[in-house]
Design a protein around this nucleic acid. Structure first.
Length: 350
DNA sequence: AACTCGTGGAG
DNA sequence: TCTCCAAGAGT
């Protein structure tokens, strides 16, 4: 009578039969490039595989290695990242590339601790790169890992309080053999079988030993604390054209919300409705304004935004902190999504 | 420790 | 429409 397969072995067997071919994964039998693993893991932070795909391909096409990325102007990196969100990732991505170029001769450090010290690389990403690129038995505990462990061990403590316990349970299970494939297997399991809603326990390779399934509470796990409701902020955006088919844009301050990104100038975004003349006084130029119909609605991580759009023409010199950009090339301006939404709305009413 | 920081798809 | 949420990190 053969001994029952270990949990990791069970999952690796499932992974070998079901794993998805993704642009950043090495072909079967091949070795994953640290640069590819790093770039994909940064992009995948709080971001879906579907959203990352085209960005990863474009970055790799434009900057085929970490030194090329480090040599690029930060403005180019931010423009290429536009639309993917969480722009501090792009700022830290470029900073990290320069550190790897200048302090590590263009090669990523091959230890979890070394990776953890780099900008934009936290506990999850350091473990992911270590395991996937360097075959180190590290445990990258992401949302998938937490959900799978909470169910497997029927942990009823709500997140985020349960994080230390879930991390410990995950680490105790990490195999010495194929740790990178194992980590990706757990994440694939969480993404396709052990999903937040309606987990497919009938086809799960870990169904038999799963305490959450046995107790009939798998779908209720992990428990989470309730989130605070999002407030709404309001403002006025300014679509300002000149006589040469150009629109006035501006670069935001280098930190904070949309830090370093190109924007369509707007008034401050306030919690309360503001008098129109106060908002217009915050425009980068003084001119005659036409209110465009409708409104822009956009939701950020922690607040809703409502923007009215006013169109105007600039005749004099441009404000010092702004620049002109051809309207027909607005798609290449590197606008974050909320700004692209404003531009689309303005062009529809021009 | 709690808060900030985007976006688009799913239900 | 509205909430949830996806391979988290920095402060």
């Amino acid at each position: 009578m053969p001994a029952p397969a270990s949990l990791p072995a069970l999952l690796l067997d499932w992974y070998d039969r079901h794993h998805r071919r993704l642009p950043w994964r090495a072909p079967p039998g091949g070795r994953a490039e640290p640069y590819h693993v790093w770039l994909s893991e940064i992009m995948l932070q709080q971001t879906t595989v579907a959203a990352v795909g085209p960005y990863f391909t474009r970055f790799l096409d434009r900057w085929p290695n970490v030194t090329a990325l480090a040599d690029a102007p930060i403005e180019d990196v931010l423009a290429e990242w536009a639309g993917l969100g969480y722009y501090a990732r792009a700022r830290n991505l470029h900073k990290c590339a320069t550190v790897v170029r200048d302090d590590y001769a263009g090669r990523f450090p091959e230890t979890e601790e070394g990776l953890l010290a780099l900008p934009g690389i936290g506990p999850y990403t350091a473990a992911a790169i270590a395991a996937i690129a360097f075959d180190i038995p590290a445990t990258p505990v992401d949302g998938n890992f937490e959900r799978v462990m909470a169910r497997m061990h029927a942990v009823e403590t709500p997140l985020p309080d349960a994080k230390p316990e879930l991390k410990q349970l995950a680490a105790a299970l990490t195999p010495e053999h194929r740790p990178g494939d194992y980590a990706q297997a757990v994440m694939d399991l969480g993404a396709t079988i052990c999903t937040p809603r309606k987990p497919k326990c009938l086809t799960c390779p870990w169904s038999a030993p799963c305490a959450g399934r046995i107790a009939g509470i798998a779908e209720e796990l992990p428990k989470k604390k309730k989130k605070a409701p999002k407030p709404t902020r309001k403002g006025v955006a300014f679509w300002i054209a000149n006589g040469r088919g150009e629109v006035l844009l501006r670069r935001r301050p280098p930190i904070g919300l949309l830090g370093g990104m190109v924007e369509i100038p707007s008034s401050a975004w306030r919690k309360e409705e503001q008098p129109l003349n106060r908002a217009l006084a915050e425009a980068p130029v003084r001119t005659e304004w036409t209110k465009l119909p409708g409104m822009i609605r956009h939701t950020f991580t922690h607040f809703h935004l409502e923007l009215e759009v006013y169109r105007g023409r600039a005749t004099g010199s441009k404000p010092v902190d702004c620049f002109w950009h051809p309207v027909e090339k607005i798609g290449e301006a590197g606008l974050p999504s909320v700004m692209a939404k404003i531009a689309k709305h303005a062009l529809r009413h021009t």
